[in-house]
């Protein structure tokens, strides 16, 4: 457990000094929001409510994608990947450490981009913001979990930053679908109606199940992926 924190700490320390990844991710997320504003809004009008979840999740997925390329690639470019793999920590600890870092980065992006999203698009919510928190949590955790795993898988291939999105997004579809639907319920559905509340919980459960399945699989299979 301590070892996982050391790996997270190592990556956070690098990030604190350079601020490369998070800076790029946050800026990119804001630009995606602006592009959405140009494509879907007419000045003075509100964003059609059914588009809200799509805007949020596409932004999160794009920004997250940007960060994923940086999970293992710098280690390879700096020739530290072999050292990391040979270090006296289990490969699952390396994996979980990298997931932790990416999760924190993406969370930071969400914390900055979401309030701006409310301001830019003039949004009013039906449900409480508190209901949005678990959706974002499971969505981000699943994205980081599967994303970092496939990033480790693609780091040994040529032009891996091309490969990663193509192999990641088809697998992510259930998670993104769950995220979009649950977010839509939080924003637009009436919370007095038990049918919608039930639907919210079942989408959330789907996301949790997705996370559990792929975290388990990743921990089982990571030994085959991270080899010298």
């Amino acid at each position: 457990m301590r070892k996982i924190f050391w790996i997270i700490w190592k990556d956070l320390a690098i990030e604190l000094r350079s601020r490369e990844v998070t800076g790029a991710m946050v800026l990119f997320a804001l630009m995606v929001l602006v592009i959405f504003a140009f494509s879907f809004l007419r000045p003075g009008e509100k964003l059609p409510p059914e588009m809200i979840p799509g805007v949020i999740w596409v932004t999160v997925a794009f920004a997250g994608m940007l960060g994923l390329n940086h999970a293992f690639l710098p280690e390879k470019q700096n020739d530290t990947l072999t050292g990391l793999i040979l270090a006296p920590v289990s490969k699952s600890a390396i994996y979980l450490g990298k997931v932790g870092t990416h999760f924190l980065f993406l969370l930071l992006v969400e914390i900055i981009a979401l309030p701006l999203f409310f301001i830019f698009f003039n949004i009013q919510m039906q449900g409480s913001v508190l209901y949005l928190v678990p959706v974002l949590f499971f969505g981000t955790a699943g994205f980081s979990g599967l994303g970092v795993f496939l990033s480790a898988l693609s780091v040994h291939t040529k032009s891996n930053e091309l490969l990663l999105p193509v192999i990641l997004f088809p697998l992510l579809i259930p998670l993104l679908l769950g995220g979009v639907k649950a977010t839509g319920i939080v924003f637009n559905a009436s919370w007095a109606d038990p049918v919608w509340v039930g639907a919210y919980w079942s989408w959330l459960r789907l996301m949790a199940v997705f996370d559990i399945i792929f975290f388990t699989l990743s921990l089982v299979l990571i030994d085959y992926v991270l080899e010298v």
Binding site: L150, I167, Y224
Partner: peptide
């Protein structure tokens, strides 16, 4: 090796 891993999770 990598495609086998991907075949399983896919």
């Amino acid at each position: 090796q990598l495609s086998a891993v991907f075949g399983i999770i896919g």
